[in-house]
């Protein structure tokens, strides 16, 4: 197991958001966390990265990372594409990409920038531009590109489709599929758009107010009409 989480709890102040989650991510697979607004999806990602207080056990590659700081979790190869994309708006597109490889040896960076540009040609066109001037879709591409610059073993994606036009979303998920099959990057994908996420993911967990209501393979969930109707709304 690449990532193994047991009894994960997290809270904002006195307000408990996660009430003991258990889930696993297999090497090379895409796992999705589905659920309504406020179910705790984003909180789960933030808890994994140590951005908020958490308890329980989180094992990455067999080693516990509960007490590891955010900056050092990155060094283990976990890249987080945060909610809102986390763009460094005042820096250029290329600088944003370079920042993604901050923890890696300098020599390899230039090649990797090229690789990201090959994946997202539109970023190459805008390489010198201030990143805050990019459209929402381009900023999302930049965020994913920045995460890839880490050569991550696990990528945490927080609602990549959020606020984007359907066509852009389709393009984006095509690229994510490409990353999955060709680069063998494992992913934990948080999505509101369940249909889209289930197409990409191998396994899904259904989150309801901080607990896991259901888990199974993507196919199982897709085919279960009761779950679809009551939780996913399609």
């Amino acid at each position: 197991m690449l990532l193994s989480v047991r009894d994960l709890r997290a809270s904002y102040g006195a307000f408990n958001v996660l009430h003991g989650l258990d889930f696993d991510i297999e090497q090379g697979s895409v796992t999705t966390l589905l659920g309504a607004n406020g179910a705790g999806k984003t909180t789960t990602l933030r808890a994994l990265c140590g951005m908020i207080k958490r308890s329980g056990t989180i094992e990455f590659d067999g080693k516990p990372i509960n007490r590891v700081k955010t900056e050092d979790i990155v060094r283990l190869g976990i890249a987080h594409v945060p909610e809102g994309r986390g763009t460094f708006t005042t820096l250029s597109v290329e600088e944003n990409l370079h920042l993604g490889a901050m923890t890696r040896p300098r020599g390899e960076v230039a090649d990797d920038v090229d690789r990201v540009y090959a994946l997202f040609p539109r970023l190459r066109e805008r390489s010198g531009q201030q990143a805050g001037t990019l459209s929402g879709g381009e900023q999302q591409m930049l965020a994913i590109g920045r995460a890839l610059m880490l050569k991550p073993r696990l990528m945490l994606l927080d609602e990549p489709s959020f606020g984007l036009a359907p066509l852009i979303v389709e393009e984006l998920f095509g690229i994510l599929d490409d990353i999955k099959t060709n680069m063998k990057v494992s992913m934990l994908l948080v999505e509101q758009n369940a249909a889209l996420a289930l197409d990409l993911a191998d396994r899904a967990y259904l989150l309801e107010t901080g607990t896991i209501a259901f888990s199974g393979s993507s196919a199982e969930i897709r085919d279960d009409e009761a779950i679809r109707n009551s939780y996913l709304g399609y």
């Binding site: 060094r75 370079h98 920042l99 920045r146």
Partner: peptide, 24 residues
């Protein structure tokens, strides 16, 4: 320089900076 870029990033967006491994 890399440190210079890291400093600018840390000032521009501390949370994102942490997520790319910068010690803000």
């Amino acid at each position: 320089t890399r440190v210079g870029l890291a400093m600018r990033a840390a000032a521009a967006n501390p949370e994102s900076a942490r997520l790319v491994g910068i010690r803000v």
